[in-house]
């Protein structure tokens, strides 16, 4: 992870250390608890759960809840399972992440290497946009998407996520490029490279790490979004989170907790995988969203 692993100079006694390990271990259990609950209950028949066996390992192992959550559970009115919504999320996330990252990279490049009067204020305006409560834009956004003919479409959601994501992507690239030597840009200018050539040939080849941070952050945020999905998606463009909520909240019929848990894991799987594979970059994104510089 990005936290520098420098050793502290503090020394502690034996008993204290035992206690510390004990506390740390207790919290490991606390953080793992919901994941454990979701996992074990997603592979057991419903009667094992309702019979007070939520914390037990499954007596009968079954993948039935997973299959049901994926392809046949009742979501809203259709018994489609989460599968179509999974693809909705993918087709929304991929373009939104790509566009917002490219724009963020260009913005960061301009804001650090082509500085002009009031550029910090403009950046401040973009950054503040990340932190507004999105309730304030819900009504006009719904109107605007309607006017643009994008209401209820995946592309409408892409637009929304790009707009409210560029503040963060710009922040990442700006902070990254701020420490990129400006002399390199000047040297390239003297060598005759233009605005885009400098970006493409000089900065971009060194931007790998921050691009990963930006992509992961955007991916996680957009995948996990619920508010925009619930507000602007149509029946055929709902993302995974909205579908999961519909599945869990649906008041008709028997509550199939095991299917709910399987669905929850399905919804969590992509971001969880990203976290396991590239957690270092995920944490870096989190941190630079809060402690800047």
């Amino acid at each position: 992870m990005s936290v520098a692993s420098q050793d502290t100079a503090i020394r502690t006694g034996r008993v204290t250390r035992m206690l510390i390990y004990l506390v740390l271990l207790l919290f490991v259990l606390f953080y793992m608890l919901p994941l454990y609950v979701m996992l074990v209950n997603s592979v057991k028949p419903l009667n094992e759960i309702t019979g007070g066996g939520m914390m037990n390992l499954p007596q009968v192992f079954t993948l039935e809840p997973w299959a049901k959550a994926w392809s046949s559970a009742q979501i809203g009115v259709e018994p489609t399972g989460l599968r179509p919504y999974f693809w909705n999320s993918i087709s929304m996330v991929v373009p939104a992440v790509a566009i917002s990252t490219v724009l963020g990279a260009l913005n960061g490049y301009v804001l650090t290497k082509w500085r002009f009067k009031y550029d910090t204020i403009l950046f401040g305006l973009m950054l503040f946009a990340c932190f507004i409560p999105f309730q304030i834009v819900l009504i006009p956004m719904a109107r605007m998407l309607g006017l643009m003919g994008m209401a209820g479409s995946v592309w409408g959601l892409v637009l929304v996520h790009v707009v409210y994501g560029i503040g963060f992507t710009t922040l990442y690239f700006r902070n990254y490029y701020a420490v990129f030597p400006t002399e390199l840009v000047r040297a390239a200018q003297i060598d005759g490279a233009g605005f885009f050539q400098i970006f493409w040939r000089i900065l971009l080849p060194s931007s790998g790490p921050i691009a990963v941070v930006s992509i992961i952050w955007q991916f996680t945020n957009i995948w996990n979004d619920f508010l925009f999905g619930a507000s602007f998606a149509g029946p055929t463009s709902q993302p995974m989170t909205v579908a999961l909520n519909n599945l869990v909240q649906s008041s008709t019929g028997v509550k199939e907790y095991n299917v709910h848990f399987a669905g929850a894991i399905l919804a969590a799987l992509p971001t969880l995988l990203v976290y396991i594979v590239a957690g270092r970059y995920f944490v870096r994104g989190l941190m630079s969203g809060s402690v800047k510089g």
């Binding site: 002399e183 390199l184 000047r186 040297a187 000089i202 060194s206």
Partner: peptide, 14 residues
């Protein structure tokens, strides 16, 4: 038609 040598040399790292 000038050329410049920079303090940090400004060599393109890639």
């Amino acid at each position: 038609n000038i050329a410049m040598v920079f303090q940090s040399y400004a060599l393109y790292p890639n």
